[in-house]
Amino acid sequence: MQHKLEQLIQAHHIILFDAQCVLCSAWANFMIKNDHHLQFRLASVQSSLGQQLLKEYQLPTDHFETMVLLEKGQLYTESTAFLRIIQRLDNPYALLRYAGVIPKAIRDFAYRRIALNRYGLFGKTDHCYMVTPEVQQHFLLDDVLQ
Protein backbone atom coordinates (compact mmCIF):
# COMPACT_ATOMS: atom_id res chain seq x y z
CA MET A 1 0.00 0.00 0.00
CA GLN A 2 2.93 2.37 0.68
CA HIS A 3 4.00 1.98 -2.94
CA LYS A 4 0.49 2.93 -4.13
CA LEU A 5 0.52 5.97 -1.86
CA GLU A 6 3.87 7.11 -3.26
CA GLN A 7 2.61 6.63 -6.83
CA LEU A 8 -0.50 8.64 -6.04
CA ILE A 9 1.56 11.46 -4.53
CA GLN A 10 3.82 11.63 -7.56
CA ALA A 11 0.97 11.43 -10.07
CA HIS A 12 -1.21 14.27 -8.78
CA HIS A 13 -1.36 17.76 -7.41
CA ILE A 14 -3.32 17.08 -4.21
CA ILE A 15 -5.15 19.61 -2.06
CA LEU A 16 -5.96 18.44 1.47
CA PHE A 17 -8.76 20.41 3.11
CA ASP A 18 -10.81 20.31 6.31
CA ALA A 19 -14.16 18.94 5.12
CA GLN A 20 -15.96 20.02 8.30
CA CYS A 21 -14.98 23.66 7.91
CA VAL A 22 -17.54 25.78 6.06
CA LEU A 23 -14.81 28.04 4.61
CA CYS A 24 -12.70 25.07 3.52
CA SER A 25 -15.69 23.37 1.90
CA ALA A 26 -16.41 26.64 0.07
CA TRP A 27 -12.78 26.54 -1.12
CA ALA A 28 -13.35 22.98 -2.41
CA ASN A 29 -16.45 24.19 -4.27
CA PHE A 30 -14.43 27.09 -5.69
CA MET A 31 -11.81 24.65 -6.95
CA ILE A 32 -14.44 22.40 -8.51
CA LYS A 33 -15.94 25.37 -10.32
CA ASN A 34 -12.66 26.96 -11.43
CA ASP A 35 -10.20 24.10 -12.00
CA HIS A 36 -11.40 23.61 -15.56
CA HIS A 37 -8.38 21.52 -16.55
CA LEU A 38 -8.60 19.14 -13.55
CA GLN A 39 -5.08 20.05 -12.46
CA PHE A 40 -5.80 19.31 -8.80
CA ARG A 41 -7.41 16.51 -6.85
CA LEU A 42 -9.08 17.19 -3.52
CA ALA A 43 -9.00 14.96 -0.45
CA SER A 44 -10.41 15.70 2.96
CA VAL A 45 -8.10 15.53 5.95
CA GLN A 46 -10.77 13.49 7.75
CA SER A 47 -10.73 10.73 5.12
CA SER A 48 -8.58 7.64 5.45
CA LEU A 49 -6.51 8.79 2.47
CA GLY A 50 -6.14 12.28 3.94
CA GLN A 51 -4.98 10.82 7.24
CA GLN A 52 -2.41 8.64 5.46
CA LEU A 53 -1.09 11.63 3.53
CA LEU A 54 -0.83 13.73 6.69
CA LYS A 55 1.11 10.91 8.40
CA GLU A 56 3.37 10.53 5.36
CA TYR A 57 4.38 14.19 5.72
CA GLN A 58 4.45 14.08 9.53
CA LEU A 59 1.62 16.60 9.85
CA PRO A 60 -0.96 16.56 12.67
CA THR A 61 -3.84 14.15 12.10
CA ASP A 62 -6.16 15.49 14.77
CA HIS A 63 -6.17 19.27 14.33
CA PHE A 64 -5.96 21.11 11.04
CA GLU A 65 -4.55 24.60 10.79
CA THR A 66 -3.65 24.84 7.14
CA MET A 67 -4.62 23.74 3.71
CA VAL A 68 -1.99 21.40 2.31
CA LEU A 69 -0.83 21.22 -1.30
CA LEU A 70 1.19 18.23 -2.45
CA GLU A 71 2.63 19.07 -5.83
CA LYS A 72 4.15 15.91 -7.26
CA GLY A 73 5.40 15.07 -3.77
CA GLN A 74 6.52 18.55 -2.72
CA LEU A 75 4.69 19.88 0.36
CA TYR A 76 3.31 23.44 0.50
CA THR A 77 1.20 24.97 3.26
CA GLU A 78 -0.41 28.24 4.30
CA SER A 79 -0.22 31.19 1.90
CA THR A 80 2.37 29.51 -0.32
CA ALA A 81 -0.02 26.62 -0.99
CA PHE A 82 -2.81 29.09 -1.76
CA LEU A 83 -0.65 31.10 -4.19
CA ARG A 84 0.70 27.99 -5.95
CA ILE A 85 -2.85 26.77 -6.48
CA ILE A 86 -4.35 30.08 -7.54
CA GLN A 87 -1.61 30.82 -10.09
CA ARG A 88 -2.53 27.66 -12.02
CA LEU A 89 -6.16 28.74 -12.45
CA ASP A 90 -7.42 30.87 -15.30
CA ASN A 91 -7.73 34.65 -15.04
CA PRO A 92 -8.90 36.61 -13.19
CA TYR A 93 -7.86 34.35 -10.28
CA ALA A 94 -4.36 33.75 -11.61
CA LEU A 95 -3.71 37.46 -11.13
CA LEU A 96 -3.60 36.80 -7.37
CA ARG A 97 -0.17 35.25 -7.94
CA TYR A 98 1.16 38.79 -7.71
CA ALA A 99 0.37 38.66 -4.00
CA GLY A 100 3.62 36.69 -3.89
CA VAL A 101 5.46 40.00 -3.72
CA ILE A 102 4.12 40.39 -0.18
CA PRO A 103 6.70 38.94 2.21
CA LYS A 104 5.91 35.35 3.22
CA ALA A 105 5.90 36.21 6.94
CA ILE A 106 3.14 38.77 6.40
CA ARG A 107 1.13 36.48 4.07
CA ASP A 108 1.38 33.57 6.50
CA PHE A 109 0.45 35.77 9.47
CA ALA A 110 -2.75 36.83 7.68
CA TYR A 111 -3.40 33.22 6.58
CA ARG A 112 -3.00 31.94 10.15
CA ARG A 113 -5.38 34.59 11.57
CA ILE A 114 -8.11 33.35 9.25
CA ALA A 115 -7.24 29.65 9.58
CA LEU A 116 -7.15 29.65 13.37
CA ASN A 117 -10.47 31.50 13.61
CA ARG A 118 -12.26 29.92 10.64
CA TYR A 119 -14.79 27.94 12.71
CA GLY A 120 -15.80 31.04 14.66
CA LEU A 121 -15.92 33.24 11.58
CA PHE A 122 -17.50 30.87 9.07
CA GLY A 123 -18.79 27.90 11.06
CA LYS A 124 -18.25 24.17 11.29
CA THR A 125 -20.51 21.38 10.14
CA ASP A 126 -21.17 18.12 11.94
CA HIS A 127 -20.62 16.16 8.75
CA CYS A 128 -17.92 16.06 6.13
CA TYR A 129 -18.16 17.37 2.57
CA MET A 130 -20.39 15.13 0.49
CA VAL A 131 -18.83 14.03 -2.78
CA THR A 132 -21.54 13.62 -5.41
CA PRO A 133 -21.15 11.82 -8.75
CA GLU A 134 -21.15 15.22 -10.51
CA VAL A 135 -17.94 16.33 -8.77
CA GLN A 136 -16.26 12.99 -8.09
CA GLN A 137 -13.57 13.49 -10.76
CA HIS A 138 -12.16 16.35 -8.65
CA PHE A 139 -11.56 14.09 -5.64
CA LEU A 140 -9.23 11.34 -4.56
CA LEU A 141 -11.35 8.97 -2.54
CA ASP A 142 -10.27 6.36 -0.02
CA ASP A 143 -10.70 3.48 -2.46
CA VAL A 144 -7.97 4.86 -4.75
CA LEU A 145 -5.35 2.88 -2.76
CA GLN A 146 -7.15 -0.45 -2.95
Rank of each mutant, 00 (worst) to 15 (best):
Q2H: 15
K4A: 03
E6A: 07
L8N: 09
I9C: 00
Q10D: 10
A11Q: 15
H12F: 05
H12P: 00
H12R: 00
H13F: 00
F17Y: 09
D18E: 10
A19N: 07
A19W: 01
Q20N: 04
L23K: 14
L23C: 02
C24Y: 04
S25A: 08
A26W: 13
A26Y: 10
W27S: 15
A28G: 05
A28R: 01
N29D: 15
M31Q: 14
M31D: 08
M31C: 08
I32P: 02
K33R: 08
K33F: 01
D35L: 00
H37S: 13
H37T: 04
L38H: 12
L38C: 02
L38I: 05
L38T: 03
Q39N: 14
F40C: 02
F40Y: 12
R41S: 04
L42A: 02
L42E: 04
A43S: 15
S44P: 07
S47W: 01
S48D: 11
L49T: 03
L49R: 05
Q51H: 14
L54K: 09
L54M: 15
K55L: 14
E56W: 15
E56M: 13
P60I: 11
P60V: 10
D62M: 12
H63W: 03
M67V: 15
V68L: 09
L70S: 09
L70C: 00
E71N: 12
K72R: 11
G73W: 01
Q74F: 11
Q74R: 13
L75Y: 09
Y76A: 01
Y76C: 06
S79T: 03
S79P: 11
T80H: 05
T80F: 01
F82S: 14
F82N: 06
F82L: 15
L83Y: 11
I85C: 14
I85A: 06
I86E: 04
R88P: 00
D90H: 08
N91E: 10
P92T: 08
P92V: 04
P92W: 03
P92Y: 02
A94R: 14
A94H: 13
A94Y: 10
L95Y: 10
L96Y: 15
Y98G: 01
A99M: 10
G100E: 12
G100D: 11
V101R: 08
V101C: 08
K104A: 13
A105Q: 14
A105F: 15
I106D: 07
R107S: 06
R107F: 13
D108M: 07
D108I: 04
D108F: 07
F109K: 15
R112H: 03
R112K: 14
R112C: 09
R113L: 13
I114F: 05
I114Y: 09
I114S: 01
A115H: 09
L116V: 07
N117R: 02
N117E: 06
N117H: 09
R118P: 06
Y119T: 12
Y119W: 10
F122T: 08
K124E: 13
T125F: 02
C128D: 03
E134K: 04
V135G: 04
Q136F: 02
Q137N: 05
H138S: 13
F139C: 03
D143W: 11
D143L: 11
Q146I: 11
Q146M: 06
Q146T: 13
